[in-house]
Design a protein around this nucleic acid. Structure first.
Lengths: 216, 216
DNA sequence: TCAACTGGATACTGTCACTCTCTAATACTG
DNA sequence: CAGTATTAGAGAGTGACAGTATCCAGTTGA
């Protein structure tokens, strides 16, 4: 198909497609002459991916390009994968946050504390520090609760990780990391409403739902 | 103190403080004459809060102002609180996403599906839709797993919510919603690394940590 | 054949979060 | 009390970002 059809079918403005081509987010079409090229389904799929990454996932064009490069050229051995994927998405803290408290909590939980995961621990510590700076006290044992819940999530995700091909694994990890974040945050908000209803009682007549995890 | 001292003690550039004053993120100082004003600890605390919200929490100036207004003027009755807090932070989806699948899953989990939480369900549905559009298949039962984990998180948070004063409750809900998001995402990444190590075996000699939730 | 479309380059726009400059009025310093 | 430094307040300017728009020469389909 030609570029105008690609634009029509994807819903992405033509000028924007040209912009993505320029920025190397979208691979070039097959040139049929000096001023004509053909595009195919792969371009359509790529455009949808770009839309998901720059839209809901909230990635910048630069980060999107790095995610796409990672998917296109799965060079990393499977175990470094998580690292590469996370590197792309994470915002490394500007200054070094104090790790001690976080590390102590992680050790209590039986998590590994090593050089390999220092970057991640630093990010966690930075998030905790930001909470402290804002004079907001995390409830007692909240950190452990958060960590436990996220380990549940992560264990499920890692268990479901495809291992048959490197490409599939890369795609799963990279996209899973990025695309699921908005879902988790949205679910948390919805769950807060649900939990609040379960705690403070339903304002309407909907009191007979079974309900797990009710506060006693 | 005067503005230059406020700047020095907070680490926020003087021009930026003026900007925050103009944007009404920071309350005015007490004028001692036409061109002089005094600031106090409340300004310092507020600046730290602004830094946490615009920095790690990633809020825009406009959203930060709405969060601060909410904290300053706790008008909402305790139960609408969550709604107001979420309203400020959430990105309502541009077009209406299909709710059926999400609603069905929620009903299976025993969560309430009502008009009150329609906005949140729409956000969840939009996140799911974005994942679908990107051609990324959520693993089997993953949605339920995510929902269950987030309900655990939310139940803990709601249980710890202070009820003695409206101000405290508002502050807890608003800041808790916003500031904990980066922490959760960072913890998820760290947990993925931990889970991956537990599944694929430690590449180093650290195999003797107790470890809950190990994959069999 | 000729209007419509195309690739490619360059220039422009709007938004955001500051940052700079300026003015007139204090405030400290010697 | 002279002179330098600060200040409040307002407006203009900056740089990054994510597109949009314009233009040109070549190509295509009716």
């Amino acid at each position: 198909m030609r570029i105008s059809e690609l634009s029509r079918r994807s819903g992405v403005p033509l000028a924007t497609i040209k912009f993505y081509l320029r920025e190397r987010l979208l691979h070039e079409g097959r040139l049929t002459s000096a001023t004509q090229a053909r595009y195919d389904e792969s371009h359509l799929a790529r455009l949808r991916l770009i839309q998901a990454l720059t839209g809901p996932a909230g990635l910048s064009v630069a980060k999107t390009r790095r995610v796409l490069t990672l998917i296109d050229e799965p060079t990393a051995p499977t175990l470094d994968l998580l690292g590469s994927a996370h590197e792309v998405v994470s915002h490394p803290p500007a200054e070094e946050p104090p790790l001690e408290q976080v590390d102590a909590a992680l050790r209590r939980l039986g998590w590994e504390v090593s050089e390999e995961n220092q970057a991640h621990r630093a990010e966690v510590a930075a998030a905790v520090a930001a909470i402290g700076v804002a004079d907001f006290a995390l409830p007692e044992r909240a950190f452990e609760g958060y960590a436990t819940a996220m380990l549940e999530v992560a264990a499920m995700e890692i268990a479901a990780m495809p291992t048959e091909s490197a490409e599939a694994a890369v795609r799963y990890v990279v996209l899973g990391t990025v695309l699921v974040e908005p879902l988790l945050l949205a679910l948390r908000r919805l769950a807060q409403q649900e939990a609040s209803k379960r705690r403070f009682g339903p304002p309407s007549e909907a009191a007979r739902t079974p309900g797990q995890h009710v506060q006693p």
